[in-house]
């Protein structure tokens, strides 16, 4: 409930990239607070704690602001997120877009940023049989290859960046 009310992160706008100065200021401000947590993360690959409210994760992971431009790069990157193996995005220049999951054009209109965050973190909590991989989960996985063991597919910052970009995809139309 506490998380549901503090819903400022739900509306993380795509314009985060234009706010480098503010991001920096916040970073410096929170630096002292976050440092112990950051060290722990590095040592044990621990995930940021999060709270699920309904079908959404209202608060940004680790309170990190998302950068939509970086998020776009992650979504299009064939070696990282590799989202395009399953999804289409409204980027006409990208060849070989996927068809196993829903078209992500308009996803920012269908879903809130908080709902998108939940689907990225672990869609299987909403649909046990889902094909959509859990991008921010390290437990209850079987035979994970050595280089990926104990690591989520995307880290907290990358999740927030992807959420920020997807939230901008309000338009169902394709370019």
């Amino acid at each position: 409930m506490r998380a549901a009310r503090k819903s400022y992160s739900v509306a993380v706008p795509a314009a985060a990239c234009a706010n480098k100065r503010r991001t920096l200021a916040v970073g410096v401000l929170l630096g002292g607070l976050l440092l112990p947590g950051a060290l722990k993360t590095a040592a044990a690959e621990q995930l940021a704690p999060f709270e699920i409210v309904g079908d959404a994760i209202p608060l940004a992971l680790d309170g990190l602001p998302g950068d939509a431009e970086r998020g776009r790069v992650i979504v299009l990157d064939r070696t990282g997120g590799n989202c395009l193996i399953c999804h289409k995005v409204p980027v006409a220049s990208e060849p070989f877009q996927g068809e196993l999951g829903p078209d992500l054009a308009g996803v920012g209109g269908r879903l809130t940023a908080a709902q998108i965050r939940q689907r990225l973190v672990d869609q299987s909590r909403l649909d046990r049989a889902t094909l959509m991989p859990p991008y921010y989960r390290v437990d209850n996985l079987t035979r994970v290859a050595a280089p990926f063991q104990g690591k989520p597919v995307l880290n907290a910052q990358q999740i927030e960046d992807v959420v920020a970009w997807l939230a901008t995809l309000k338009d169902q139309e394709r370019p």
Binding site: S124, L131, P133, L141, V144
Partner: peptide, 13 residues
Amino acid sequence: ERQGQLNLACAQC
């Protein structure tokens, strides 16, 4: 059985 970091079973594909 689902397997790997992407948590997919043969049957799912």
